[in-house]
Write a protein that binds this DNA or RNA. Structure first.
Length: 191
DNA sequence: GAAAAGATTACCT
DNA sequence: GGTAATCTTTTCC
């Protein structure tokens, strides 16, 4: 099988670092979810950072019933429902997290993980996974990237109405799995 | 208790 | 490119 191999499981120390740095380094990492019909995996190509004092963050107004997982330890999954789908985040430091927006499917079974809701559907992540940890024995893990990642571009985040100018969306330039709107790639050298 | 808004997506013109 | 679907959480009266 032409499977892009992945490295070791990322532990708490990986997530217990500044959120922007974690976000950037998650690109190329693989999320693996054990399911009833075997493991499913997605290699991340697009994420967004949500910070302290960030009006676009669900944690901005303090702890609520919905966002309590964002205040859990590093490596906690924060899963929330929006409209008819769910989206997943990985908590870094208290009250900060990285939204998983898109990735490349590990095989045909994962379908199309291009978009936060689609990515969760590809991995079988549900609201039941909210609050679980990816650094422990749970069914979901993150494995470090094993190969080079393409050029990374920083652009404004998608779908928010506050702090829209902050460039906290990180994506692999020109990767086919990056969701829409597709970021413009600065032309240092046109290809 | 009621109303509005939403870190989206699928389908329409 | 624009809009409806759809339902939970949050917020306001």
């Amino acid at each position: 099988m032409a499977r892009s191999s992945s490295g070791r499981r990322l532990g708490r120390s990986f997530f217990d670092r500044p959120t922007v740095r974690v976000a950037r380094e998650l690109l190329g990492a693989t999320v693996v979810a054990r399911g009833p019909d075997g493991p499913r995996s997605v290699r991340l190509v697009e994420v967004e950072a949500y910070l302290r004092g960030d009006p676009a963050s669900h944690a901005f107004r303090g702890l609520t019933r919905r966002n309590r997982s964002m205040f859990g330890p590093p490596g906690t999954l924060y899963v929330y429902r929006i409209h008819q789908v769910v989206c997943a985040n990985l908590v870094t430091r208290r009250g900060e997290a990285v939204l998983l927006r898109a990735g490349a499917p590990g095989s045909e079974r994962e379908g199309n993980p291009s978009g936060p809701g689609r990515l969760c559907r590809s991995l079988g992540i549900t609201i039941e996974d909210d609050g679980s940890s990816v650094t422990g024995p749970g069914r979901i893990a993150v494995r470090s990237r094993s190969g080079p990642v393409g050029r990374v571009v920083r652009t404004p985040r998608v779908g928010i109405s506050q702090a829209t100018e902050r460039r906290l969306r990180f994506s692999v330039a020109r990767d086919r799995w990056v969701s829409r709107p597709r970021p413009a790639v600065p032309s240092a050298s046109p290809s």
